[in-house]
Write a protein that binds this DNA or RNA. Sequence first.
DNA 1: GCGTATCGCGTTTTT
DNA 2: CGCGATACGC
Length: 732
Amino acid sequence: MQTQIPQIHADRDHPQINRDRLNAQQYEAVTTVDGAVLVVAGAGSGKTRTLVYRVAHLLHSGVPPERILLLTFTRKASQEMLWRAGQLLNDSCSRVVGGTFHGIANMLLRRYSASLGFGSSFTIIDRADAEGIINLLKSSLGFSGKEKQFPSKRVLINMISGAVNKSRDLEDLILEQYGHLSEHLDDILVLRKHYGEFKFDHGLMDYDDLLVNWKRLLEEDPQARRDISSRFSYIMVDEYQDTNLIQADIVRLLALGHNNVMVVGDDSQSIYSFRGADFYNIMRFPKLFENTQIVKLEENYRSTQPILSLTNDIIRNSAEKYTKTLFSRIEGEFVPELYSARDEREEARFVAATIRKLRGEGVQLENIAVLFRSGFHSYKLEVELGTHGFDFEKRGGLKLTEAAHMKDVLSFMRILVNPKDTLSWNRILLQLDKVGPKTAQKITATIAATDDPVAALGSYKAAPAWKKGFEKLTVLCRRLLEEDRPTAIFELVMQYYTPLFQQIYRDDYPKREKDLDQLKGIMASYDDLQSFIDDTTIDPPETESEDAHYSDRLILSTIHSAKGLEWQVVFVIGLADGRFPHAAALAGDQWEEERRLFYVAATRARERLYLCYPREMMSTDRRFKRVGMSPFLRELQPGLYRHAADGHAADGYRSTDEPSLRAGKKDVAFSIPKSRTPKRSLDDFSLGSKVSHPFFGVGIVKKLTKPRTLDIHFDRHGLKSLHLDYAKLTIL
DNA sequence: GCGTATCGCGTTTTT
DNA sequence: CGCGATACGC
């Protein structure tokens, strides 16, 4: 390992680069202008900084800004980077093209729509549209009987989100994530086929379609490919471990003419495989591009050494290809603390009390974050913080535009942009009193069959019960067609929608009203509807409370939403068995991903890290159930953390029933499933043997069917066909 | 057949 | 809280 930072005095570059420090590896990455570069960088090792400096360097070397393409995970990230690069150059980087794969895809597809065989009026759908699609598909296909157990919505959300793509097929996904649902595979395949047709007929595009069509454009239209790859002669990709195979292909195709690609990533921070991301893209990169230069960044500039020692231990067992040993020269006497709480409420109290103490020591609230695996894990804490008067902001969970009332309003904008958008028509019609799924379906079918939806709407004969409301809608649509200013459209829609809104959400409409106000503000900054619609689906705005500019607030966030960020103090809560890793995570790849998720959480901390878990949690039948600490905590070496010294905390811990912690490494094998596929053989199960499944409960083995599949009759759930590699079965 | 009110139950992660 | 099942009313 290198022991000294070679200080680069970049005199031959520009003076601004001098001000900040770059180590030798970063400098190498920044200044390599030609050819493919893979930067494998650990957490907190200056990935962003490397990209920022590279943009600055390219511009300084005379590369025209519009020839640089910066692809990041969120649009915010690219804006932030370009802003920083601009600071470095005392200049603006606004002409550098930066954004997400999906955002850039959208931009290009609008421009080249002619050569792709679909009209330019398409609307983009997200997971919140899944329900509407399911309803329309179900009624038009007449799925019958079986749909009680039919996991259509979950699976459909996966399709929309791009977890299913050409390279990672639906069948694999079902087996991996819904092993016990494999009996529905045929139904799901039928659903998928019709879903594809449905989208095409109604000008809808999901996340995967954006990428697939971008790739098609590059592959099938040589002229477009040449245009695009000569337009962007320097490609940079951040968070490369979160790209899927289609994205990797797009990068390859983009660089076909020049090979100037730099990707930055960390295989041990790959946490998005459920969405189709494949971190092997990092391993494949050198094969894709000849003479790839590999740069490793191993110094961590974020965390103190005690924190780093612990986080290194978290990933010690995971099988990573690019082994990095992170080190830090930031000293710190604070050793990460483990707090074992009696229950969730006490865990919340500990967090609140510790935060209060930290504030007393002068730590600003905005420098503290509480992270957790799933959105609802913070409910108890939110209550607790509320009573203590702490101001907090929650990240993760529903996006602003995914809320029902937002979708309602946006539907009007969407039909104006894309009159074929049956999904939005359906939503609008459902708002009417006495109009349900069936009626809405009939009307949308009529509308879809004509070229002039509004005329069709006008001549549709309404039943007396909902005639009045329907006529109002027709009038609104006519008036909307005469407007093209977004703000005017918003006003018209609100005039119509407000009474309905107050009726539909009469219990809590005041709260939702604020969101609508916010939408008005956002719309005012656009002058055409199309780009407004695209932006809000691809990159939904955050929900903002009234005092958004008052920034001294605690952050509560899912770990996924905390990616790439850092705080002085980080609490990770809910580190209990069954909660983290998520109960449905299977041994093997999914288990490893959960471990990396924990790694990502812990590496967000600069100075202080608190790991907390409750020993008792509410289980499904409203009873309290004792739970142990997360297996990921149990496998840590005891010397790397200490127990929170806070009053009753220590006592609470001593009395627990978890000897494995004190015993340390010795007991590790006990709690961790053998990694990769736990090969259990069929021989272990004989006909008639009694087994237990975490969800279905107790059952009897009835039949051995396919190679590794069992038919089991469960007392409470009937006959299920389970795959040995995926179902968590215990022999009783 | 369709729409609506109500109760009870379970909640992964998201560009 | 949001969603599914269920019962009731037109």
